[in-house]
Design a protein around this nucleic acid. Sequence first.
RNA 1: GCCCGGGUGGCGGAAUUGGUAGACGCUGCGGACUUAAAAUCCGCUGUCCGAAAGGACGUGCCGGUUCGAGUCCGGCCCCGGGCACCA
Length: 816
Amino acid sequence: MSTPYHPESVEKTAREYWENSRCFEVEEDPDKDKFYCLTMFPYPSGKLHMGHVRVFTINDVIARYQRMQGKHVLNPMGWDAFGMPAENAAIKRGVPPAKWTYDNIDEMRSQLKRLGYAYDWSREVTTCRPEYYRWEQWLFTRMFEKGLVYRKNSVVNWDPVDQTVLANEQVIDGRGWRSDALVERREIPQWFMKITAYADELLDELERMPGWPDSVKTMQRNWIGRSEGVELAFDVQGEAEPLTVFTTRPDTLFGVTYMAVAAEHPLAARAAAIDPGIAAFIEDCKKTDAAEATLETMEKRGMPLGISAIHPLTGQEVPLWVANFVLMSYGTGAVMAVPGHDERDWEFAKKHDLPIVQVIRPADGSEIDIDAAVYVEKGICMNSGEYDGLGFDDAFNAIADHFERSGRGRRTINYRLRDWGVSRQRYWGTPIPIIYCDDCGAVPVPAEQLPVVLPEDVEFTGHGSPLKDIPEFIKAACPKCGADARRETDTFDTFVESSWYFARYACPDNDTRMLDERAAYWMPVDQYTGGVEHAILHLLYSRFFQRVMRDEGLTDVSEPFTNLLTQGMVLKDGAKMSKNKGNTVDPQELIGRYGADTVRLFMMFAAPPEQALEWSDAGVQGSFRFLKRFWSAVIAHTEQGPVSDLDPAAMNDAHKALRRKTHQTIAKISDDIGRRYTFNTAVAASMELLNAVNRLDDTSATGRAVVHEALEAVVLMLSPIVPHVCHALWQELGHEDALIDQGWPQVDDDALVADLIEVVVQVNGKLRGRLSVPADADNDTVSAQALADPNVQRFVGEDAIRKIIVVPGRLVNIVV
RNA sequence: GCCCGGGUGGCGGAAUUGGUAGACGCUGCGGACUUAAAAUCCGCUGUCCGAAAGGACGUGCCGGUUCGAGUCCGGCCCCGGGCACCA
């Protein structure tokens, strides 16, 4: 073996070994303890970026570590291949989305291979292939039969100049990104999946998911937003239909001084027909994009409709307004306003001079001025007729009972979660398998006619979906009556593909069933790793889809991901490094210069996985330097010839100290990688151990045996992170068997025993001295020794000692 | 606006259960090697006072609990992620 570290040849050798021995291809084996290790699959945007390298390396470290623990590891890779960037590339460069996508996949696959990831490539999944998406089309038709999908109108961003639907990210400050035209909200019919039917289960199961971060569970809980309240009917003057509203605060019902409906509400439309001012206001309300953040931050505006509702308890007239912050698609499209006890209602009432009535007083008896500040806490009812004096729960129940008895309302549970709109007016996606027949309506495509294949050779103009211009695609016979009918031209939201790919990795080649018994073996995913930006949408949709597949009899598993690790982003100059912002560092260039191991090492060393990672070119060089030091330390050791077995009796204090350090480090790194996932501290501990090895300048037989043990431990423990160099160094250390088949090193508890330990001494909590004491010294002995320390004496002086706190093995605190 | 994170030296970070703040690495400075440079190796590197021993201060800001707070509690400020059509 040549002496200097040449990453290129070292990595090529290791890569070829893994490839030739096919050691990462796994089959189902019931006798083995399976471990399914997965990352969120990438969108094939062109080249790998550092965010990819980070998450894939984290995953690879876990996969290789679990393998060394004796687990039967499945670690697959695939492509989330449908999506907007392919269409944008097609418009910009005239490349068909399919060709652009397949070229990108080829490029990125070769990059992944160069990074040495332990993937089972035989299971690769590509979502834009009909053999993949046919099964989600099939599941959609099953959901259709069960009533789990339905069609209704919903809002999109409409660009009136380009005559096309825009994604939220294509709307910049309320204008279309290409046309610069003011974007309008427009309602069109779209397909929805009933995720709300699973809302309670998705919420409740979070309580039994200890392997997920609390932050993600909290976000999902808040997103589902279950609230218990009452639905109430208000009669409207001159209208036959009452206006229904939902409230979680029926105890404040007597404080209702106005009501508001959405701009799209029929009552608003009727008022607009006779009042041009209202009509103009409603038109104006539509000139905003559909994003929630926009609606929540924009100025709250409204207009009186000139009609009144009747308060169901007092019989008083309550003016009805139309307001831009009430949305037709949320709840009933109408809200009751209690300005005394709701922040937004209070501000709106102040602005429009609407009355504010106090109907709740603080339970502690304190006085408040409802005109000066809103009071949103729960308290005691007042100005509420027969309900005066009741607390929240009593008032809630009394009022709810009253409405249920009179049939004018009912207790109900409301969710913030809305059904999942899956229709996209785009070309590069899975065709929604529906045929529209003039007589039979929307008819799902029968299973034997699936897949509905997306034509890949299309003319791409950028104005609307090209599917609308392909008569052969649109023309279809109605599956029910055989009459001429039209095929749906909308495609699925790409979150549909990513909601079940993890299960399909188990059986990607099955062309007769969506999932088979192999999925029963591998599912659920034991460790799932991906960006925290997916904490809600992708993970919630996947949990939903898993349950839909379960209820279809395809699997027994309800929760797809047992353990979740959300990695932070890769930042450069404090900003997210991403394809959209163009502030990327090219991994390929770094691999060419330093090798894959250096890039992997820097990624793992620079920050713990959950935190954002700030990119540093100097840090990469530091990682490269470490690998060179690592390499030469092993070479310097092996050049001295064979090593004899370690004779414990022959060890001096320095030998014992190094051996203790070796086994302390094994214990620490096992914990860091196996439990804490703090790969940065695992790397730091390896560096410390290697520094300790280099400091022990001892060529005696015992010295070399202790060093040998330490070096083998470092090679084994760093191998999940820098597998290529460790593959070579393992051979250098004299082993015939490949490193990939080795087990994780074991701690020798005997080596951990120390005779003396250091204890710090504090006076009144401030550090004043250090002691070396026998490991088995009792508290009194340690206290006495602490008091004898000259510097400690200086600070204790003549003062009376009030208390001495001894934390065994750590510190003594003398309180005076 | 709402929900979830984060804030520690010149920089990335460590401190795992309330017990030594700054491990490990980077940068910088000094030195060795070299004709020279690169590479490599050795030393120093939170701020202030001090010749040193040592001391004072110090984990975004303000306050609290505790023998002891980066860690717990209350109130703020700033930065990042998500907000349903980016993936």
